[in-house]
Design a protein around this nucleic acid. Sequence first.
DNA 1: TTTAGCAATCGAAGTTTGGGAGTGCTAAGA
DNA 2: TCTTAGCACTCCCAAACTTCGATTGCTAAA
Lengths: 345, 345
Amino acid sequence: MKKMNLDVRKAKILFAVINEYILTAEPISSKTIAERYQLSISSATIRNELAVLESMGYLKQPHTSAGRIPTDLGYRFYVDNLGADEPNPDEENSINNLFIALNKEVEELMRQTSVLLSRLTRYTAMVLAPLLDKSRFKHLDLVCLCSRTVLLVLITDRGCVTKKILEFNSEIVQDDIVEVERILNRMFYNFDLTEIKIKKKELINYPIHIRNLLKEITIQVVGCLAEEEKEKIYLDGTTNIFSQPEFENIEKIQNLLGVLEERYVLLQFLKDAVDSKRLIIRIGSENKQKEMKDYSFVGSTYEFGGYTKGTIGVIGPTRMDYARTISTVNCIARNLSKVLGSLSE
Amino acid sequence: MKKMNLDVRKAKILFAVINEYILTAEPISSKTIAERYQLSISSATIRNELAVLESMGYLKQPHTSAGRIPTDLGYRFYVDNLGADEPNPDEENSINNLFIALNKEVEELMRQTSVLLSRLTRYTAMVLAPLLDKSRFKHLDLVCLCSRTVLLVLITDRGCVTKKILEFNSEIVQDDIVEVERILNRMFYNFDLTEIKIKKKELINYPIHIRNLLKEITIQVVGCLAEEEKEKIYLDGTTNIFSQPEFENIEKIQNLLGVLEERYVLLQFLKDAVDSKRLIIRIGSENKQKEMKDYSFVGSTYEFGGYTKGTIGVIGPTRMDYARTISTVNCIARNLSKVLGSLSE
DNA sequence: TTTAGCAATCGAAGTTTGGGAGTGCTAAGA
DNA sequence: TCTTAGCACTCCCAAACTTCGATTGCTAAA
């Protein structure tokens, strides 16, 4: 298998094969190409070229006397020379309109972006939410649910709301809770995680009967704020995998579903992508995970406050519609960057 | 097809067939029953009885010279005579332990119950959340996200937190928002939906520059409280369907997935169940929806504050393990009732 | 270098066949 | 009257075989 640059004709033929294969999911013959593409050469010539493309590793035959299907290398050549990076004004416009309707609160925005991405691409979509550091304490609510249980609700200036249930060993005095809530709200208002960690040393000045409660709640508040700074993943359209024709056998699907449920693997996957360039495409065996070798990932990083903050992307079969998908993923990433930009003004 | 009561031997044989079929998912022969069940009769006798059971509509043959499989009527007889209603102490105990670890806030509790149910039964689980009427206003937070966008966070005494984004046509004065927040928190504290609707007439007494804002926010608060009183459905373990052996053909699965995505149909389904007796079992064609004719529903109502408030249940193939499933569903429903009871104390 | 022609290849789909699992029926035995 | 051994019959399933057509690679001529 020798690799080299392709002359124009070979490239055209390779593109023809891949385009047809993406459409039909069936091996493509020299005759099909001669008929459907105006290359002004006979099927015999195409046949010769196909044989060369195969020896170069761009195509393969499922069996002798069958048509050709692309290899991962073939797809790689295809996407590298697709030139689908420049936005399509129509799509840009319609996605832009969709984004206008979306929620302006970060968490909900991420969730909705993920849903949108899966709907538009018809693949499985994933969104790695941005690292929200420096969130500021806005308001704390403590709600007594029953005699030993308190619900803590923390709201930050970015509009993130965290709930947490606290169970105590002993009965809780309702008035203490009210007082603790008042004290902490006054004390921490508009402070970020670092500042609260420093400020909490002052708690020692408060009366003994509520000091423990103050400490405990503060620890929880710090925990919530720290939790908010962690990456979160949104996943949608998992069942879209099933509408692909290649999945006559359920086993492969179950393998992939397994991977999708391993949040940690996904997180690593998407975090790897954050450090790379804007558009990320991993085709079949280019993925590190062996369960992903029949799937491709098309993703894009997005920005928030001037520098890269997260990744969005989709997983589909290697035989995915790269042109359409790349365009859509890019467009959504751009819109997301824009909306996030307007939020942080 | 004549229906009548079954003598003991016929019932034993029917049970044997169904038990085996649940285990193996393959047609059961007279020989198999003679070998594996100590009925002290020959396979020929069993054969005669099987023929009678078939003529009565309890069994059918996929084709002549094959073993028997149960009909929906057969399953119906099976579950009606299973006597699996009384709790199994071991299971009771372990599920009880699982519930202790669950969250004590209604919304989260429902979500977790749904997950637990799907994990334990290995079917698709659904939970119809209780009607939470008479929730009381606990605290309102207004967070300015950008110049025209405000995040509204409403917390009720039950610990439900609702977020809503408000977009205004004109720029918002930060101080007004702070004032509105203060006024409404003082005004509505501990009021329920009805009381707030009456109380909001007093808003007219406030200065003109914030009156519109007050009105607008109040409308949203009322909307949030009303929303909270609506039924909600939690759905988990959708992909569990795929691990069933009967699903070599993907089409049926997609039909079912379609139904599961129609929240309205599900809602109707579960609300029907609320009005019936505690344990609800709908086998195959007993379901109104034709897409459900190959699936069974096993559900149970649960109580909250002394009267029936909602339904939990699972959907699986008609060939499901009824004994195990009924027991688990019942057990979880009982635990849920108990936890909800302790919350409303 | 291109291309028409053609033998060779091989899978997909259809057909045939044999085996085996299972049934229903019959007649003898309890 | 009920049970059961025996047996013919049915019919699916899997394997073996056949046919058909799509496609290729090769050859030789243009």
